[in-house]
């Protein structure tokens, strides 16, 4: 059952024209002229893109389309060769990742980065922002951070309950299964109370049962008013959960729209399956060499 905020997001996007670089009614993240190349290879070349606030936006595209690179650039883990981008009206071009996280923009990774030899609870506590006790001087005076720590602990416990990890709170994160690590990473990101969550392939290597629960969690995140952007290969997930889909191919954004529009878009089908996917390789009875050379 879609909640109120979900309905709002859908209705807000209904009027947006399904064109690459379309303007959104309430953009949270705006990127202009972002370019990243490795030698002669242009990995990312995005002219203009806007991410709607309060919606779930999927970033899809075939392998090597530049999705992850674009993601890394936006989240400060890679430097762009050109371009500007802003978050909630503030320019954040080439800003260091830890500063972005403090501004309310937090990401997860394709290969989960659970901190193995820390307990699940410590992983969660590490996510909490603005901790006094993280200053070296204050850390030796527990009275300066004990109260804050207690509050963070309570908040972490609530999140762990929600993500079904409460029983594991005192276990090492390294002892969790792959799917549980995905959950932990998502829960840990929420400890920062971010405005924007960027998930890099949240479904990679997750079993179908857990997929459903991850999808529910992503919807819940939006229900709390948090904007979600994710990179994904899993088309079922994209169709299921996203309000808006941005398609990249060869570093460029080639299409945008609601999931249904995008799936029917000829440019998208061409990008994924090749422009000649519905043509026979060998024209009726002709030789093989002639067919492939066309």
């Amino acid at each position: 059952m879609p909640g109120e905020l979900a309905a709002q997001a859908v209705s807000a996007l209904a009027t947006v024209s399904p064109e690459p670089g379309a303007a959104k009614p309430e953009p949270l993240l705006i990127a202009d002229g972002v370019n990243r190349h490795f030698g002669g290879l242009v990995a990312v070349d995005v002219t203009h893109v806007e991410i709607q606030k309060g919606a779930i936006t999927a970033l899809i595209g075939p392998n090597g389309a530049g999705k992850s690179t674009f993601f890394n650039v936006l989240s400060g883990f890679d430097k762009a060769d050109a371009g500007t981008w802003s978050f909630a009206g503030v320019t954040i071009t080439n800003t260091a990742p830890h500063r972005l996280a403090r501004k309310g923009m937090v990401r997860t990774f394709q290969l989960t980065k659970s901190l193995s030899r820390l307990t699940v609870m410590d992983n969660m506590l590490l996510g909490a922002g603005g901790q006094t006790g993280e200053s070296m001087v204050a850390s030796v005076f527990p009275f300066t951070w004990k109260a804050q720590e207690k509050k963070n602990r309570e908040r972490a416990m609530v999140l762990l309950e929600r993500f079904n990890l409460a029983a594991k709170a005192q276990d090492f994160a390294g002892s969790l299964s792959g799917g549980q690590r995905k959950l932990l990473e998502m829960a840990r990101a929420l400890m920062l109370q971010p405005e924007l969550v960027m998930l890099d392939e949240p479904m990679a290597g997750v079993n179908p049962a857990l997929k459903q629960s991850l999808l529910d969690h992503i919807r819940d995140i939006r229900e709390e008013g948090t904007t979600v952007v994710f990179v994904e290969h899993d088309m079922d997930m994209v169709r299921d959960v996203s309000d808006w889909v941005i398609v990249m191919a060869q570093g460029k954004i080639i299409a945008e729209g609601t999931p249904d529009t995008v799936m029917r878009d000829q440019r998208v089908i061409d990008a994924y399956l090749g422009a000649h996917h519905d043509q026979q390789l060998t024209a009726s009875g002709d030789s093989l060499t002639e067919g492939t050379s066309s």
């Binding site: 830890h98 937090v106 901190l115 506590l125 590490l126 996510g127 993280e134 070296m136 204050a138 990101a189």
Partner: peptide, 23 residues
């Protein structure tokens, strides 16, 4: 302390700690 927790986090995975807003 939380400071020590950040250090241990860095030992495990620096990028994860950076993504969580710690220098």
């Amino acid at each position: 302390s939380p400071w020590g927790r950040v250090l241990k986090g860095i030992r495990e995975d620096e990028d994860a700690v950076r993504s969580l807003g710690k220098s």
